[in-house]
Design a binder for these strands. Structure first.
Length: 507
RNA sequence: GGCGGGAUAGCUCAGUUGGCUAGAGCGCACGGCUCAUAAUCGUGAGGUCGAGGGUUCGAACCCCUCUCCCGCUACCA
């Protein structure tokens, strides 16, 4: 074991149905988690659902349900979506769980005891849909700038979190730890935001009941964002299991979309400082997934769910597209045509066909038995280069570069086959040369399967089995297992099998 | 308004501290091969590197001006 590796997605608000924007975040976190598991890390990969707040309360009322009944229904849809695309989360947290109430109350008490929460009266213009206050300048024609609906003048006695006290500490933290917010462009945004100055914010509500009561004043419930962020601590035993918390904390990676960067890079670290806890090592904010150039959202007609695409592309095809065909960190445009083109080119033609031709030749030319592995050969250097590039790229969450290196090895192997023409050496009766070439290709496939397994686990596992390898790619350990000839494969039984990725023909 | 990031082949993008004929993938064209999922391999097509000016022996990369696009500027992944 290389120690704990704790990675999270945001908890998704259950008022939304899961769509490919959520999946975009979640698949990336999953690939990261799987990649670290391959290194022997003791990974904790957390996702979940955010279930408090006025919007949930109202949505439930409209349906004649209790808030929890409504949350049960929608939370389940997220679990189903993640199962569909092979998300390997180790835990799924719901903010309505008892363990979360325990952690939130412990966290709040700690911050309160440290003197960073105070009672004050707040008067302002409130948008019910946002659950947020606005000042006149924010409004557009007197309406909420987000929902275009009237705001209400509200006076409320609230507890305030003294965010302003953390302005300088946060600036110093991000200047001293440039890797803490990635990519760099997002770090600049965070620093720019911090330098504008921070205001204390209200972190309790008396107007609603669907939430977690403050331990020292149960008439107030915790504001939904304050509650939600603490989920990351809840899941590792904050307030309940000190040993586990000590072992897991802090988080290595919070993976999230750019719209909630501020909560994770400003509010959350400030809350942790206030509680006297270490800060997350990395917050990675990726760009939006656009459809036809428009932001994916629940109100968009372009809303697309994983279940709309998986039947045609498969879980692996779905995962492959969202990780490699878009540049993580920037906004990316989704298109069905682009997805089909990439699937056919990379998965069917390059990867799938390489496996198909090599396995077929191994069966027909070598009797289905893996030949002796050669310590030297034209592909050895290519495989080493691929591994090196893969490891360093994934270490920086450059997923497209990392898997691009694997696909380069696939191209190298296809090229090697053309150069050596094993079908000709076989017809010429030169069994030794034929076996040597195919032995090299089978070894290259083994390495490809291993390196690709975090991204396309089903195909990688299927290929692994067809190569006559025991277990699954997940059992291997990087980087050693991806070194040429790391595993004795001579004599393993090879089987051809069905196409790993059948071509998709669009009319 | 303020701060920040962009503008490079049909498309999506790479281009380290300025330096040989500006690169990759996809798409396209032509050619080869036939083991393979009409897959694969090779070659090519020639993009005023947004516009103008400057620095330099030399700039896509540095400076100035301009045009256009985008992000953040306190709560939808």
């Amino acid at each position: 074991m290389s120690g704990s590796f704790y990675v999270t997605t945001p908890i998704y608000y259950v008022n939304d149905a899961p769509h490919i924007g959520h999946a975009y975040t979640t698949v990336h976190a999953d690939v990261l988690a799987r990649w670290r598991r391959l290194h022997g890390d003791d990974v904790l990969f957390l996702t979940g659902t955010d279930e408090h707040g006025l919007k949930i309360q109202r949505a439930a009322e409209e349906r004649g349900l209790t808030p929890l009944e409504w949350a049960d229904t929608t939370s389940a849809r997220f679990r189903e979506a993640w199962a569909l695309i092979d998300i390997s989360n180790d835990d799924f947290i719901r903010t309505t769980e008892p363990r979360h109430r325990v952690a939130v109350q412990a966290f709040l008490q700690q911050v309160y005891d440290n003197g960073f929460i105070e009672l004050a009266t707040y008067e302002g213009l409130y948008c019910v849909a946002c659950e947020a206050y606005y000042v006149d300048d924010d409004l557009v024609d007197g309406l909420c700038p987000i929902h275009q609906r009237p705001v209400e003048s509200v006076s409320e006695e609230n507890y305030f979190f003294q965010l302003s006290k953390f302005e300088q500490p946060l600036i110093e933290h991000y200047e001293a730890n440039p890797e803490a917010v990635q990519p760099e462009s997002k770090r600049n945004e965070v620093l720019g935001f911090l330098r504008q100055g921070l205001r204390d914010f209200s972190m309790s509500r008396t107007s609603i009941s669907w939430g977690i009561p403050l331990p020292w004043d149960p008439a107030h419930v915790t504001y939904v964002w304050y509650d939600a962020l603490i989920n990351y601590a809840t899941a590792v035993g904050f307030g309940a299991d000190p040993d586990q918390f000590e072992y897991r904390w802090p988080v290595q990676y919070h993976v999230l979309a750019k719209d909630i960067l501020r909560f994770h890079a400003v509010y959350w670290p400030a809350m942790l400082m206030a509680a006297g806890l270490p800060l997350p090592e990395h917050v990675f904010a990726h760009g939006y997934l656009l459809v036809g150039g428009e932001k994916m959202s629940k109100t968009s007609l372009n809303n697309i769910a994983p279940a709309d695409l998986v039947p045609e592309f498969g879980s692996d095809g779905f995962r492959y597209h969202f990780v490699t065909d878009l540049h993580f960190g920037q906004d990316g445009d989704f298109s069905y045509e682009g997805m089909v083109a990439r699937y056919n080119a990379d998965l069917a033609n390059n990867f799938g066909n390489l496996a198909s031709r090599v396995l077929n030749m191994a069966v027909t030319y070598c009797g289905g038995v893996v030949p002796d592995a050669r310590a030297e050969g034209p592909l050895v250097a290519h495989a080493a280069i691929a591994l090196d590039a893969y490891e360093s790229a994934l270490g920086e969450l450059k997923f497209d570069d990392g898997f691009g290196a694997v696909w380069q090895l696939i191209r190298d192997a296809n090229g090697y086959i053309e150069d050596s023409q094993p079908w000709k050496t076989h017809k010429a009766g030169d069994a030794a040369v034929t076996a040597a070439v195919l032995g090299d290709c089978l070894e290259a496939l083994r390495i490809v399967a291993l390196l690709a397994s975090p991204l396309i686990p089903r195909a990688a596992s299927a290929l692994w089995t067809r190569l006559g390898l025991t277990g699954a790619p997940e059992d291997a350990r990087l980087p050693d297992a991806a070194v040429w000839g790391a595993v004795a494969t001579t004599g393993n039984a090879v089987e051809k099998g069905e196409s790993l990725f059948p071509r998709i023909d669009v009319p």
